[in-house]
């Protein structure tokens, strides 16, 4: 299985993104392999979130290609797909730096919205459900079951019927990941999932991400918390000012002089993040 595990899932080729005169991404190429956790790191303003926005269809890249390998061996050109199809067909789900739950809906409903496509198909796009026909009841039951299994995993089952906006911050973060997983993605993109979490919540998050990987979903991760990144990533891509400056295993990246320079040159705080990991 090792050979298949290392198959490329997402290939980013010569990706460029410009906003007016500002080049946010310049000629970025990297590969995220199937069954791995790929982390994208870099100082603030390096273009990490821009790259994410291109991959998930939030932005149209100015140049370059994004291809996601299909299960049948073909590939999707993500840069040319409308946003909702990137989630629906290609199976790419994401979370944001700032939490974007449907705050006024219940915790359970948040997870059901993510399963809208199979549910709507079972209702015959609304028409059969109104007539009480079709497999709608069964589909709805399955959807609720799946939502509950995720709530159990993220320890929120008891709060299923509370509004999502009333949850504590750490729980909202976990719920967002669970919601993204309810889309049944092949690739889950997480933008700073550990931001604002306390150490014990961060440890739980790391365990959750490793469990998601073990279940066969690949992950692409932007994260500033170097402890998490170094501990769970299989592969790290380092960006600085829109360009890739390093790419490899955590050990390789840690030893790369370009990376150290980028972090030391930026500001002391980011350098401190990396420093304890650099000195053995």
């Amino acid at each position: 299985m090792a050979a298949e595990d290392a198959m490329p899932l997402l290939a980013v080729r010569r990706l460029g993104m410009r906003f007016g005169g500002i080049t946010a991404l310049d000629d970025l190429s990297f590969t995220a392999r199937r069954g791995e956790i790929t982390a994208v790191i870099g100082p603030n303003g390096a273009g990490k979130t821009t790259a994410f926005n291109c991959i998930t269809g939030f932005y149209r890249p100015s140049s370059g290609e994004l291809s996601l390998t299909r299960p049948d061996g073909g590939s999707y050109a993500l840069a040319k797909m409308p946003g909702h199809l990137i989630a629906r067909r290609a199976g790419v789900a994401r979370t944001f730096q700032n939490i974007r739950l449907f705050a006024g809906m219940t915790v359970l409903e948040n997870l059901l919205v993510a399963q809208h496509i199979p549910l709507m198909a079972a209702t015959g796009f609304g028409i059969l459900a109104i007539l009480g026909l079709g497999h709608y009841r069964r589909a709805e039951r399955q959807a609720v079951e799946k939502a509950k299994s995720w709530l159990e995993r993220i320890d929120l089952l008891a709060r299923a019927d509370d509004p999502a906006g009333s949850l504590p911050y750490g729980a909202q973060r976990r719920l967002e990941i669970a919601r993204a997983m309810c889309v049944d993605p092949v690739l889950l993109c997480l933008d700073e999932p550990a931001a604002g979490l306390n150490p014990s919540e961060t440890a739980e998050l790391g365990a959750l991400l490793l469990r998601i990987r073990a279940e066969g979903c690949s992950l692409l991760l932007i994260e500033h918390d170097m402890n998490v990144v170094m501990r769970i990533s299989d592969h790290i891509v380092v960006l600085d000012r829109g360009r890739k400056i390093s790419d490899g295993t955590p050990a390789e990246v840690r030893a790369d002089p370009h990376v150290i320079a980028a972090y030391l040159g930026e500001d002391d705080e980011s350098a401190d993040d990396l420093a304890p990991e650099v000195v053995p």
Binding site: F58, G83, A93
Partner: peptide
């Protein structure tokens, strides 16, 4: 209701 709260996010979850 999801679209009403966050149109873009609803799209990212696969809702047309």
């Amino acid at each position: 209701r999801a679209c009403e709260q966050d149109l873009k996010m609803a799209g990212l979850l696969g809702i047309d």
